[in-house]
Amino acid sequence: MQVMSNPVALHWKRLLVWVLGVLLPLLGVGLIAEDLLEKERFRFEQPFMLWLHSHANASLDRVAVTASTVGSVYVMGGFTLLLVFVLWEKNRRISFYFLLSTLGAAVINSASKLVFGRPRPHLWEWIVQEQAQSFPSGHAMYAAAVATALVCMLWHTRYRWPMVVLGGLFTFLVGLSRMYLGVHYPTDVLAGWAAGMAWSLACWRVVRSHASTDPERTGQLEHS
C-alpha cells in the first residue's frame, strides 16, 4: 500500500530548502557585494590570510596546489562534460540539470568578476599564477555548484550522505586552498560557496517543480 505524503510537511520542507539553501546564501552574497561596491574593507581578511600563510610549508603547498588544480575550470569542466555525456542516455532531464547548474555557475561567476573587478590580494609571492579578477572565487563557486548538484541528484539514494560529506570536504578544501595560496580573499571564497550552492539548489527546485506535472518524470528524478 502506498503511503500518502503529508502536503503540509512537504510544503515546509521545500520552504526550508529555499530559505536556508537559496535565500540566506544570496543575502550573504548581496551584503558582501554591497560593501565591495562601496569600497568597504573587510578588516578580518588580511590578518586571517597572514595567519594561514604563517603555517605554510612545502607539504601544504603541494596539497593546496593539487586541490586548486583539481578544482580548476579545466579539470572540473572536463568532469562535467563527461558526466553529462554519461547521463544523457539514461536521464536527459538530470543531465540537463547538471549542465545548467555547473555551466550557469561558471557564466555567473565570469559576469560577476567583470562587474566587480576586484583585484586579487598580493600579500606574498604566489606559487601559482592567476589573471582574472578576484570576486567571487570561481574555484569555490564551481566546486560548490558541482557538489550541491551531485547531492541533489543522489538525494533519494543510499549515497546521499556520503556525497554530502565528500562534496562538503572537497568544496571546503578547494576554497581553503585558494586562500592559502594567497590568490583570493576570504569573502571571495565565501561568496563563491554561497552563490554556487544557491544557484544549484534553485535550478534543482525549478527542475523538480517542472517535472512534478509528469508522474513518470518525477519518478525518474527521485530514483536517479
Rank of each mutant, 00 (worst) to 15 (best):
L37F: 02
L123T: 05
S68Y: 01
F96L: 15
G71P: 03
A64G: 09
S112G: 06
R41Q: 11
L83C: 11
V128S: 02
L103V: 15
K39W: 08
A143R: 03
T66K: 06
F98I: 13
F42P: 02
S137V: 00
V70K: 00
L100Y: 02
N109R: 09
P47A: 12
W51R: 10
V65R: 02
S134Q: 10
Y97S: 03
M76H: 03
L60M: 13
E89S: 11
H55S: 08
L99V: 07
L82H: 03
W51G: 05
W126Q: 12
A111Y: 05
V146G: 00
E130F: 02
T102G: 09
V63Y: 01
R93V: 15
A147K: 00
E45D: 15
L36C: 04
T66W: 14
R92K: 15
A140S: 15
A58E: 14
S72T: 00
L81Q: 04
T80S: 09
V115Q: 06
S54K: 06
A145R: 05
S95L: 12
R120M: 05
A106D: 12
S110N: 08
V70M: 00
Q129T: 00
F96V: 14
G138M: 05
I108Y: 13
F48G: 05
L52W: 01
G77V: 05
I94S: 13
I108Q: 07
D35I: 10
L82G: 06
I108C: 09
A56T: 13
F135M: 06
M76D: 04
V146S: 04
R118Q: 00
N109Y: 10
L52P: 00
E40V: 10
E89T: 07
S68R: 04
L82S: 06
L123F: 09
T80W: 07
A56W: 07
N57D: 14
S72P: 01
S134K: 12
V65W: 00
R120V: 06
S59R: 13
A56R: 10
D61S: 12
P121Y: 00
W51H: 06
S95T: 14
L103D: 02
W51A: 12
S95F: 08
R92V: 06
E38H: 04
L123M: 08
D35Y: 07
A111K: 08
S95M: 08
N57S: 13
Q129S: 14
A145D: 10
L87C: 09
S72D: 06
S101M: 12
P47V: 04
